[in-house]
Nucleic acid binder design. Sequence first.
DNA 1: TACATTTGCCTAGGACGCCTAGGTAATTTA
DNA 2: TAAATTACCTAGGCGTCCTAGGCAAATGTA
Lengths: 189, 189
Amino acid sequence: MARVGLNTERLTAAGAELADEVGFDKVTVSALARRFGVKDASLYSHVKNSQDLKTRIALLALEELADRAAAALAGRAGKDALTAFANAYRDYAHEHPGRYAAAQLDLDPETARASAAVRHSQMTRAILRGYRLAEPDETDAVRLLGSTFHGYVALERSGGFQHTPRTAEDSWTRILDALDALLRAWPAA
Amino acid sequence: MARVGLNTERLTAAGAELADEVGFDKVTVSALARRFGVKDASLYSHVKNSQDLKTRIALLALEELADRAAAALAGRAGKDALTAFANAYRDYAHEHPGRYAAAQLDLDPETARASAAVRHSQMTRAILRGYRLAEPDETDAVRLLGSTFHGYVALERSGGFQHTPRTAEDSWTRILDALDALLRAWPAA
DNA sequence: TACATTTGCCTAGGACGCCTAGGTAATTTA
DNA sequence: TAAATTACCTAGGCGTCCTAGGCAAATGTA
């Protein structure tokens, strides 16, 4: 009996690809087994269960996304950093819709704390350093940016922007302009 | 054989309640049947299939949400309207997490066009009338607001704001202040 | 090279959710 | 009161998840 050479890592990677192809919610243990030409029971030596598989894909996506964002930030500051970071985020969502969806999976608090999710908020804070906001304004701004980026991508992906001639691309650019302006003139409490 | 008196409407309403209790993704035909003390096959005279059931719950949630937002907007303008609208949105998500999740379901374009989703964007535009933005700025601002509100609620629900002492409540208030300031001083292209 | 150990993948099978077909009894309508 | 409708049923097929236990391929060791 020829062995395919499965292991946890390969399963996670293949699961991520599958997610991009058919959607994260359609990533199942059996679909993944089918892709490897293997019985589904065979996967349970490598992943604990379906939830475990999905969590691993989510963590992979968070890592990849953080890596991209970090690369985008390197050597930039101010609006330049803001734009590069935001685009890294949005581009990843476009290129890897399934992985992006995976990154939104609700992780249990412990897993989340050990994940690349922390790098994400650290990087957002790094961008804001250029705008010199004092606490708690910086925290509020972190949340505003996170919300807006995530929300925009979510609405865009669900087709919410298709009813007007204005392209999602153009609005995005202008919204980044607007956020930059807002951060430079953050209103006093 | 005693009849329970099922019909599509009651199933949808019960499905919405179930969603709030156990999460929208755990709303299944069999769980709903169990709740009525009925065999799952019995539900298929009232809903076409599982997807149909979920779509109906989503449409119900969109209606409810639009009704609340409309009530919040009545008689208000400017920042007052912005705040009331945003809070209606967020409060609904807190009170009805399952329904709110349902409202995010990807509807097929035709269903979406016939849904209350259109009312939502119309109302957002109504708020912006107080800020007198010309097109395409108004469209961009509609997208910014939609993204931010949705994104904030999503991040808040997934526990993304629990790592700092700053409360989600306080950041929300300040973000609304900031958005108001931004809309009043929308940067020129 | 021979044997022992590990491990990758298997079969068998149970639980549960989705859904169809066809039936019977309760309700409504004529 | 008979006919038509409808609410719910049983039976059963299929797919996904997951466990238990087995065999054979790969790997380590003498």
